[in-house]
């Protein structure tokens, strides 16, 4: 559905994208991960035809965006990082404008109404966009992308700035949309991408550093697990007991949490919670608290970088296309 080949883009002398390639099949949801300034938005802007690349090509459903931009753009719904809203219009007139702009051939009123219901903005349809809250603005932006029912949706950080309730709602909506659409979404939250996407693409400094299925990424590259433990007992004994547990790679002493209790972090190659529980149960050390430490994107990213076997250079990927 989406074929991106060897995209390279310079901003003046700065290389913003370096040989970025990936493909996406129909109905897949791709998560685009990376720290700020990694090149996520630039890639998305090139795919949607807002920017041009210095070299490389983008094909949407077999149509090259440079050769036939109008036909290719018809197949894309795009929610940029900042929703492209006209502040002086009402939600309804704005969506009608987008409907006409995209030259959609559907009954306008029904189409807009059903989208408003889908993204839950029916109650603010008559309001002027200027007066909407951030969450509603984001949803109007999403509605704008959905108009015309394009087969491809490109969503640039769709949940940034929303409250937790709204984030859950939008994620649910994206999963629902994923049944009918091919979606690329960007984020700097690993958990978000894990929750929503089939495939993950990690990008840094304009280069793709990992291109994996979500399941394999969590299974291999990010396989280091981290636990925080508070254990009743003396430091040396507890530490050596923990180190004896099968699968534990590293034990770090953090300090005395409460009187007579020590706090540790434990790194392991796999899930060792049960093993730790059983082996400590055989001793006198009581586990007072055991918390999995969630890996941030940076940790995962570092893991991928350091675990050399997991690095997939963009060059290597070209051969798969």
């Amino acid at each position: 559905m989406i074929k991106v080949r060897n995209l390279t883009k310079y901003y003046v002398r700065n290389k913003a994208l370096d040989n970025v390639s990936f493909t996406l099949k129909e109905g897949e949801i791709l998560g685009f991960l990376g720290p700020n300034g990694a090149g996520k938005s630039t890639t998305m802007n090139i795919i949607t035809g807002y920017l041009s690349s210095d070299s490389g090509s983008v094909e949407i459903d077999g149509i090259n965006i440079l050769e036939n931009p109008t036909a290719a753009k018809k197949k894309i719904g795009y929610l940029p990082e900042i929703p492209p809203l006209y502040n002086d219009m009402t939600v309804k007139s704005y969506l009608e404008f987008i409907f006409r702009l995209k030259k959609v051939r559907k009954p306008m009123k029904e189409h807009i109404n059903s989208i408003c219901e889908q993204v839950r903005i029916s109650d603010v349809k008559e309001k002027i966009i200027k007066n909407l809250s951030k969450g509603y603005r984001q949803r109007v932006g999403l509605a704008q992308a959905l108009i015309g029912d394009p087969p491809v949706l490109i969503l640039d950080e769709p949940t940034v700035g929303l409250d937790p309730q709204q984030i859950i709602e939008i994620r649910r909506l994206i999963r629902e949309l994923g049944k009918k659409h091919t979606i690329i979404l960007s984020s700097h939250l690993l958990s978000e991408v894990q929750a929503v996407c089939d495939k993950i693409l990690i990008i840094n400094n304009g280069r793709i550093v990992a291109d994996e299925l979500t399941s394999s990424l969590t299974g291999t590259g990010a396989s280091t697990e981290k636990l925080r433990l508070i254990i009743e007992g003396r430091k040396p004994q507890v530490q050596s007991a923990l180190q004896k547990v099968d699968g534990v790679t590293n034990v770090t002493y953090l300090g005395e949490a409460e009187k007579g209790c020590c706090e540790f972090t434990v790194d392991s190659r796999r899930d060792v919670r049960r093993l730790i529980f059983r082996s400590l149960a055989k001793t006198d050390f009581n586990i007072l608290q055991m918390t999995p430490v969630e890996l941030s994107l940076e940790d995962t990213y570092l893991n991928i970088i350091t675990g050399k076997s997991d690095i997939k250079e963009a060059d290597a990927d070209v051969s798969n296309i």
């Binding site: 035809g49 931009p69 894309i76 995209k102 704008q144």
Partner: peptide
């Protein structure tokens, strides 16, 4: 300034 050009330039309009 308002980034609304993104809506216009990514729409099927020359």
């Amino acid at each position: 300034k308002n980034k609304t050009d993104q809506a216009l330039l990514t729409a099927p309009v020359g």
